[in-house]
């Protein structure tokens, strides 16, 4: 069953078109890597799927999924490393898509945070402060926040940027396990052509005027042609 259906989607800013007439659909359980050169519109596409940017034409359809219940993880560089916040405060904010009176957190919200922190093996960081964390730990905290927002779909914008290779491998292991063991659908922008061959089952390549969407095997064949 298709989870997200993107049909004839065009996106852009002002009068400049960045993505034009793109169609593809993501099935439940897919792990899709979005690749392409800088300026190809990878982040723009994600904004379109999240509903942060209105399509110029075409549409994005969700099946069995509400738009607010997508776990989004923005680029780490967009976040102030020195922002005073505890890990718990940040991860809790992921639960704000649940309806609530005013904006108070419930016991269930706090329980969910515990679960997610345990799942990612960072329960000990619950009371730690964001500015004191390492790059890899910060990424896990942001991942934990998106897991609080969604149990079904994660959308990640270059999660491995600025990570050393050990942290990167660790992050990819976590994502793989979320995909395989928890059945989560994952959509991830990456620059890492070496590693995406190892994880993910599909590739969306946004080369200018030459979009490709298909299995990893087909993509590799196409690249070698």
């Amino acid at each position: 069953m298709s989870f997200i259906e993107v049909s004839h989607l065009s996106l852009g800013y002002d009068h400049q078109i960045v993505i034009s007439n793109l169609s593809f659909s993501i099935e439940q359980g897919d792990f899709v890597c979005i690749v392409g050169p800088n300026g190809a519109g990878k982040s723009t596409l994600i904004k379109g799927i999240l509903g942060l940017l209105k399509p110029m034409s075409g549409e994005v359809l969700y099946h069995g999924l509400k738009q607010n219940f997508i776990g989004y993880m923005p680029q780490e560089s967009k976040i102030d490393k020195h922002f005073p916040a505890s890990v718990e405060e940040i991860v809790l904010s992921g639960t704000l898509n649940q309806s609530r009176t005013f904006s108070f957190y419930s016991k269930e919200d706090r329980k969910r945070v515990e679960e997610v922190l345990n799942l990612l093996g960072i329960a000990s960081l619950k009371n730690a402060h964001f500015p004191d964390l390492s790059g890899g730990q910060r990424q896990k905290v942001l991942l934990a926040r998106s897991l609080c927002a969604s149990t079904k779909l994660l959308i990640l914008d270059e999660p491995s940027n600025n990570l050393d290779s050990t942290s990167k491998q660790e992050l990819y292991q976590i994502l793989k396990s979320l995909n395989q063991n928890k059945g989560m659908t994952i959509l991830m922008i990456t620059h890492d052509l070496d590693h995406h061959n190892l994880i993910g089952n599909k590739i969306l390549s946004l080369e200018k005027n030459n979009y490709f969407y298909g299995s990893v095997e087909d993509f590799v064949k196409k690249v070698h042609e």
Binding site: F69, Y72, M73, A85, S93, L96, S103, R145, S146
Partner: peptide, 22 residues
Amino acid sequence: VFSYSRIFAITFDESFAASIGI
């Protein structure tokens, strides 16, 4: 007091806050 957690979410990361429907 009444929008404390939403104010936090927006202040910390506006695009994430928007993505979850704030």
